[in-house]
Design a protein around this nucleic acid. Structure first.
Lengths: 241, 241
DNA sequence: CGCTATGTTGAGTTTAGTCAAAGGTTGTGG
DNA sequence: CCACAACCTTTGACTAAACTCAACATAGCG
């Protein structure tokens, strides 16, 4: 389907030709000319898990599109307590338009590939292209919806419900089409510590709740990271969704 | 300062002339012609505390600007557990552009005045005016920042820190200019039940923490609602900001 | 003035956190 | 290829924070 649009690939920068962000991501708003201009200053990067993309304190100088992997957005208190306030997947856009200070840290949760470009270059293009501004607006609204959904989880759910909600979130992301009774298999993109930071719990509590779901036959776990959800429906019940 | 812009007030619809939303709110993006068109379909409403502006289930048919008062955005679980996911003040915009389903309930937390207009009328104008789209984008990004700040509070702060954070939020909103050592006096826009729903706590815990702040001389409270914060700095310490 | 809402306080329970130890997994260098 | 180290995860016993239930106090309203 989308290949129809790519007949004149010669117009499209090499870097962008196979890029998901050009279809579902923000770059989809750009014409070949704009894409070419942006591609001049963009660089692909492969980042190991744990590498910081955006610092909590310093003003950001670049934006990025995620090509693969998972990025976590975190907030940290002076005494070290941490909260993950968002997870981003390909082809999400990373960055805070219209402001330099971010007040948020972005870190590779898994090994990640991104396409990074200078803040200035994109800011210039936003001013020129309403369609690009609109795509960024949509992403912001989407992140806002997700953040508010998660606030309910953080504020009002029990530890058991929180862990089920998290697994449900990942399962849904791995396979958005899955029907309620279907089985989903995936590798967790987060360590227990990250899951705890995402859910506002401790590592130990997360571990205990995962064990409970395992012994009760809702999920299976191999090698800590590899998870099988036998029935999304059962997981939803546990999450009180 | 802004009165300079109002010399040709005859162009401005009567309804809009004294409206704060025309300066700091989204209507500031509209020219007199657009303002006139929008004013044709807009109506001012006075809503008592507790009245619902937007339903969690049904698609919204109108947007609104808050003229005065406080609106709470809430999410509710099937068993009745509730979480306030945002507070909005004048001249904030209420509504979810580019989507009908809201998945959120908006309710007057205090008596409220709003200027409401049909979703369609504004959607049409968004398509025409990039500046209007931009203002809505900025508000969405601002709400996203606030939501993520609050996620840290919900997930990682103690009850004492949560209550101090809430009082700090309100105090800052009442007087954004106040210096650290200054005294701030205000009426709480929320009941204890609402505060509990905002903080992910129970009424009793909120009450106990307020009592503690009172007995320790950080705040004074009269008639349950009227609060004096003696030193914003001390409150920030309690909130771990 | 009494009634209903809302808010406070206390006693006991529950949930999740803390601290400590042991079990697994992964990756490295011999 | 194996052994070891580093890290991550699980499990258990105990503790602390917040919740529940219940009684009482206060404020606002008719």
């Amino acid at each position: 389907m989308t290949s129809r649009l790519d007949i004149h690939n010669s117009d499209i920068p090499v870097l962008c030709r196979a890029c998901e962000a050009r279809h579902r991501g923000v770059c989809g708003a750009l014409n070949p000319q704009q894409l070419k201009e942006l591609a001049k200053t963009s660089t692909r990067k492969a980042l190991d898990s744990g590498i910081e993309l955006v610092s909590e304190a310093e003003p950001a100088e670049s934006y990025a599109n995620i090509l693969s992997g998972v990025v976590k957005l975190t907030k940290t208190m002076a005494d070290g307590r941490q909260q993950i306030v968002g997870l981003q997947f390909a082809p999400d856009f990373i960055g805070r338009p219209f402001r330099d200070e971010n007040m948020i840290r972005a870190e590779a949760a898994t090994d990640v590939h991104v396409c990074a470009f200078p803040k200035r270059a994109l800011d210039r293009m936003i001013a020129q292209s309403p369609e690009l501004g609109h795509r960024l607006h949509l992403q912001a609204l989407n992140e806002l919806d997700e953040a508010r959904d998660w606030m309910l989880t953080l504020g009002r759910k029990t530890a058991a419900e929180k862990v089920a909600s998290f697994l449900h979130l990942i399962a849904r992301h791995v396979d958005p089409e899955i029907e309620a009774k279907g089985t989903v298999v995936f590798d967790l993109p987060l360590t227990r510590a990250d899951i705890a930071d995402f859910l506002g719990l401790t590592i130990e509590t997360v571990s205990r709740q995962i064990t409970k779901l395992r012994t009760e036959g809702v999920i299976a776990v191999e090698n800590n990271r590899h998870v099988t959800v036998f029935s999304l429906e059962r997981l939803e019940d546990r999450a009180n969704l």
